[in-house]
Design a protein around this nucleic acid. Structure first.
Length: 603
RNA sequence: GUCGCGGUAGCUCAAUUGGAUAGAGCAGUUGCCUUCUAAGCAACCGGUUAUGGGUUCGAUUCCCAUUCGCGACGCCA
């Protein structure tokens, strides 16, 4: 029996019991109490009915309890150990230990649903750097994708990249200037000379060009005009800059793939990390067409030479979709993107992960989409994640106040290496886990204030803590595997009864794993899974520190050679604890896989 | 100015969507390695949940006001 079935059984039993009182309720809330001494499940129905029935909640709770006892089915009797009515009017349920055990040991897998979900995330822009905001989006998006895969859905990953637009023309303008000042001759050849340099250096160069263009755009009227003109040229594939443009674009895209692989994304059939790549250059054509079509139908309006969506009519902002130069803005492109995605993969749900700074835009966008294609609008969900900020404020590529993803990963890796003297490969894995966990562990909506040294923790509630705990469980198992041992507590029936408080507490955490996955996925909240895994690891470490899995006193060591990894032949193993250890390891491993945290053998 | 989001321990964050005694980590103090990995464990310290009212059996959570911070508010994404 799964956790879900168990909960359903208790809920329906309560439902029946309540019905006996002649009242009907729309739903029964059944939760795990925070405090373990309040049982495994808790119901507040008596308090909710108190007003309606004009009776004391305790009284109601007691009669419900009596009805439960009278109505009980064999299933129910099998599951429930004890029911209690407490103070304000809670009805608390204790599950038989045997069942807790069964649920914990069972490897629950969610059945395939056939539901098709597309998740769009990361969305870095070619010609600009991949900063820690992209790192955040990638980490969150990948975990959301994995959570939905675990739930049995068919998931596709999408990445939408801005290969046209003002930021590109600013970069190109910067490149033109930089390449000119180096030498004369063919611009593209000058750029290609950089090919000898590492990809990282070339990307850095592009970033600098952007900063240059962006700064001049604001300072220099002439530069501004040139950049605006360039923007149009890029849209029109003007042959003067096309070659240059393609070179830079290719470098960027290659570079992004390298980072995705470093972050542990799996390669797809196309040999890349995302299933689908969308570009603004393509979306803009579709978007233009759609907006123009619906301009005639009166959904959009002309105003001051631009095409706008009158959001004010619907209590939202009015936004420009096609600017006065005839070019589509972000909003129009997004309108083009939705049907393009649907053509590739006829999804039931489209999840779009972006920074929360565009939350307001998205509301407008969704309103416009609902008038154009209501069925697509219904299938679309926008998740705005918090922005990554530096202690001194917002990041800005223009002023160079940017922390790139690679820099962060490298620095953390270095710190791990220095602090713990671990080898290169291990340090990399620990560093990646530390960075990702730091981004995943808090709620998705809030901004993340990034402060190196404070933000990325290697101990306490951190990625390495989970890795370390997993290593501990594996270490016990290897030790046992290499050894002949006797198992104590062979008697299965007695096993459930004699659990000490640490064992019981671990068991009560273990069986909840599938519930946590479900609620993390349903709420788009990876932090729920982080919280759970951390709690589990803490409980395991407490248990581990307090109790022996392999009996110490039975260890026979060769008298002359008391090395720590000698044979443990003759050691006795507590089977209950062994199972708890195995299970903890499994859950940790699975959970870390969903969070996409690398696993290490030793630390 | 209008709209949206937020304010929880010195710092960074939780709190099962209205539940029981508001919990962790970091920082600080103190113990624990000849015993399955000390990136660990235990203990202490730390709170008028921004402020004031309201709704009810019950509020960090919902409503109103005040205040502070961030974002958006017509041609960037």
């Amino acid at each position: 029996m799964s956790v879900f079935e168990l909960k359903e059984k208790i809920t329906s039993a309560i439902f029946k019991a309540v019905k006996e009182h002649g009242v009907s309720v729309d739903q029964i809330v059944l939760d795990h109490p925070e405090v373990e001494s309040f049982g495994d499940y808790s119901c507040n129905i008596a308090m909710r009915l108190s007003k309606q029935l004009k009776k004391n909640p305790i009284e109601i709770a007691n009669t419900v309890k009596d009805s439960l006892y009278r109505l009980q089915t064999t299933d129910y009797r099998l599951i429930i150990d004890k029911v209690d009515v407490v103070k304000p009017g809670f009805i608390n349920f204790w599950i038989k230990k045997e069942f807790l055990w069964k649920m914990a040991v069972e490897n629950y897998e969610f059945p395939k649903t056939g539901r098709k979900i597309m998740v769009e995330f990361t969305d870095p822009n070619p010609f600009k750097e991949f900063h820690i905001g992209h790192l955040y989006s990638n980490t969150v998006g990948e975990t959301l994708a994995r959570l939905h895969e675990i739930l049995g859905h068919e998931v596709r990953r999408a990445c939408y990249q801005g290969d046209v637009g003002m930021h590109v023309s600013k970069s190109i303008w910067g490149i033109l200037l930089s390449c000119h000042s180096r030498e004369g001759g063919n611009l593209c050849n000058n750029l290609l000379k950089l090919e000898k340099q590492s990809l990282e250096e070339r990307i850095k160069f592009l970033g600098e060009c952007y900063a240059l263009g962006a700064a001049k755009y604001e300072e220099d009227e002439k530069a501004k005009e040139e950049i605006n003109a360039l923007n149009k040229k890029i849209y029109e594939h003007d042959k003067d800059i096309e070659e240059l443009y393609q070179v830079g674009r290719t470098w960027s895209l290659l570079y992004f793939e390298k980072i995705y692989e470093r972050l542990g994304m799996k390669l797809k059939e196309n040999g890349k990390c995302f299933d689908y790549y969308y570009f603004e250059s393509a979306a803009s054509e579709k978007g233009l067409k759609i907006v123009n079509e619906y301009l005639e139908r009166g959904i959009f309006e002309k105003s001051e030479g631009a095409v706008i969506f009158p959001g004010k009519k619907y209590g939202l902002h009015t936004l420009v979709f096609i600017n006065s130069a005839g070019l589509p803005t972000y909003e129009a492109k997004e309108l083009g993107l939705a049907p393009a995605k649907y053509e590739d993969f006829s999804y039931d749900l489209s999840v779009i992960v972006t920074g929360n700074e565009i939350n307001e835009y998205f509301k407008v966008l969704m309103k416009a989409l609902s008038l154009i294609s209501p069925e697509l609008e219904k299938k679309t969900v926008h998740i705005g994640h918090g922005m990554v900020r530096l202690p001194e404020g917002k990041m800005s590529s223009r002023t160079g106040k940017v922390i790139t993803g690679e820099w962060l990963l490298d620095e953390v890796k270095k710190k791990v290496k220095e602090n713990y003297k671990s080898d290169n490969e291990t340090s990399e894995k620990i560093g990646v886990a530390a960075v990702k966990y730091a981004l995943l562990k808090s709620g998705i909506g809030h901004d993340v204030i990034f402060d190196f040294g404070k933000s990325i923790s290697l101990e306490g509630n951190s990625g390495p803590y989970l890795q370390y705990t997993l290593v501990r469980t594996m270490s016990v198992l290897t030790k046992i595997r290499n050894t002949k041992y006797e198992i104590r507590n062979k008697d299965l029936n007695s096993k459930f009864q004699i659990l000490n408080s640490e064992e019981l507490s671990l068991l009560r955490t273990l069986y909840k794993f599938p519930e946590v996955i479900k609620s993390a996925a349903d709420n788009y909240a990876p932090n729920l899974l982080c919280n759970y895994l951390y709690d589990l690891a803490q409980k395991f470490n407490l248990f581990y520190g307090k109790h022996r899995i392999i009996d110490r006193e039975k260890v026979e060591r060769p008298a002359r050679n008391p090395a720590p990894n000698t044979s443990y032949s003759g050691a006795r193993i507590n089977e209950t604890r062994l199972f708890l250890t195995v299970k903890t390891g499994e859950v940790l491993k699975k959970g870390m896989e969903i969070l996409n945290l690398p696993v290490v053998d030793k630390m």
